[in-house]
Simulated assay, not measured.
Amino acid sequence: MADSVFIEGLVVETVVGVYDWEREVTQSLVIDLEMAWDNRVPGRSDDVADALDYATVSRRIGTCLKELRPKLLEHGAEVLAGVLQAEFGVIWLRLAIRKPGAVPGAKAVGVCIERGSR
């Protein structure tokens, strides 16, 4: 299956980082997500109940990362991928988490993972 649903540039404010000062403030994370999903059924029915609801997925991403308060982006990505696969039945996903302004001179730093199989 080559179909997918994606969310690009989702900003989540959360506590993230390993330094003491980072554990006391919120910072922005930027999420890009692509999920394998058979879009033929919602394409025919035009019914949101048949689709992977990206608004619901986006809210869940925010809730997960705000509750998790990860020290490492790698940990945030792994936990988030597991939650999305378990709760939404996503068999494959590509997830990038960026932390803007974390390194002087760089627009952002981050991680990208793929989990599951198409």
Rank of each mutant, 00 (worst) to 15 (best):
K71Q: 13
A106I: 00
R69G: 07
S45D: 08
V90I: 15
L68V: 12
S28P: 11
G116H: 04
L29G: 10
V109N: 02
S45K: 04
K99W: 10
Y19P: 00
D3V: 14
S45G: 07
V79R: 12
K99F: 08
V103W: 04
N39G: 06
V5W: 00
C64S: 14
L72S: 07
A102R: 09
I97M: 12
Y54E: 00
R23T: 12
E22T: 06
L52D: 00
I31L: 13
A96Q: 07
A81S: 15
E114T: 15
F6W: 07
A36D: 02
W92K: 07
A55G: 10
E78G: 05
G116E: 04
S58Y: 12
R69D: 02
Y19K: 05
L95D: 01
T63D: 14
L80Q: 10
I7R: 14
A36T: 04
V18N: 11
P42G: 01
V90R: 07
R94F: 01
L73P: 01
R118M: 08
G17M: 08
A102G: 07
A96Y: 00
I61V: 15
I31Y: 04
M1V: 14
A49L: 09
L95W: 12
A102D: 08
V109C: 09
V111K: 03
D46Y: 13
H75C: 02
G110C: 06
V57P: 03
W92R: 10
D53S: 09
W92Q: 03
D46I: 13
M35T: 01
E87W: 03
L33H: 05
A106H: 11
D47A: 10
L33Y: 05
G76L: 14
V30C: 09
R40Q: 11
A36C: 06
D20V: 05
G62P: 09
L29R: 08
T56R: 12
S4N: 05
I91N: 07
V41K: 13
I61W: 00
G62W: 13
E78Y: 02
A96R: 13
V16K: 06
I7G: 11
G101S: 07
S117L: 12
R98Q: 10
P100N: 09
N39V: 13
L33R: 00
T63V: 13
W37Y: 15
G110E: 02
D50R: 03
D20A: 15
F88E: 02
R94Y: 01
P70D: 04
R40I: 03
V103N: 02
E24F: 00
W37P: 00
G76N: 05
V12T: 07
K66P: 00
R60S: 04
G101W: 07
E8N: 12
E8F: 06
